[in-house]
């Protein structure tokens, strides 16, 4: 992740790999009657493919608004957003919906699993929404859940699962359709440290590959070690970007490497 500003190198110089996310001069204002609330003030951001980037900062600094724009849920007031080469702010509402369905996976703070559905049905939703037959979609979801050590809980409803298990279902739901971009909003906020680490390990192992990327909004500094880059935000601006020293590879070893490079390889841009 890089920030283009007068005091930092350009994004292009930092991004050796293909670019997953590219934001240029993003501003966002919320208008409520006569009241205009500016939330983002010219954000420049770049995340190479194959990396996991974190957005951190105090509540209300604009993190969620920024990932909403990146994910194609909100439209910026001005600026340009490109996700894997696709200019998304100029897509129609229907095109954005389709873009999200095909290219984006979501992990929410409160999981947002549908309580009436079983674990495997929850994980299969993106495939069902894309028109895959129910049986086929649940089979694919079951296979992924098994990789996440959830093979014994496929038929259980969310209320029958622990917080960590529910988040693993959410991870499966975010990944089952093999999206290019995974957007995580406080994925460990409701989890203890051990479970949070486990979720991030799984996410790195499955979601990170040379043509995919993960962006995480978090307050949880216990998981910073998993980030390739950490962008610090405040008051609608990116203040600086920290870079961890991970090797860009996938698999569980990445988490181990992350632990070894913790505090050692980061630097401000």
């Amino acid at each position: 992740m890089s920030q283009a500003s007068q005091t930092s190198p350009t994004a292009a110089t930092l991004a050796a790999a293909p670019v997953a996310i590219e934001c240029r001069a993003i501003t966002k204002e919320f208008v409520n009657g006569d009241m205009v609330t500016p939330v983002l003030h010219g954000v420049d951001l770049e995340l190479p493919a194959g990396e996991m980037g974190f957005l951190v900062g105090p509540s209300g600094c604009g993190k969620t608004t920024l990932i909403s724009i990146i994910a194609g849920i909100l439209t910026p007031t001005s600026g340009e957003v490109t996700v894997f080469g696709r200019d998304i702010q100029h897509l129609s509402a229907g095109q954005k919906t389709r873009f999200r369905r095909e290219n984006v996976g979501f992990i929410f703070q409160q999981y947002n699993l549908l309580p009436a559905l079983s674990a495997v049905e929850n994980a299969a939703i993106p495939l069902i929404a894309a028109g895959r037959p129910y049986r086929e979609a649940t089979a694919a979801a079951a296979e992924l859940l098994s990789r996440l050590d959830m093979g014994d809980h496929l038929k259980k409803q969310p209320r029958q699962l622990s917080g960590g298990q529910q988040q693993r279902v959410a991870v499966a739901r975010a990944l089952v359709h093999q999206p290019k971009l995974v957007v995580c909003d406080e994925p460990t906020a409701a989890l203890d440290a051990h479970t949070g680490h486990r979720v991030l390990e799984l996410l790195r192992a499955i979601a990170i590959s040379p043509d995919r990327a993960v962006i995480v909004v978090t307050h949880d500094n216990r998981i910073f070690e998993f980030a390739d880059r950490i962008a610090h935000m405040d008051d609608g601006r990116i203040l600086d970007i920290e870079r961890n020293g991970h090797q860009r590879n996938s698999g569980a070893s990445a988490a181990t490497q992350a632990a070894t490079t913790r505090h050692g390889g980061s630097h401000h841009v």
Binding site: R100, R101, N112, I125, A129
Partner: peptide, 10 residues
């Protein structure tokens, strides 16, 4: 809302 974010159309 979650379904909408995931890509289920209006």
């Amino acid at each position: 809302g979650a379904l909408k974010a995931i890509g289920v159309s209006n």
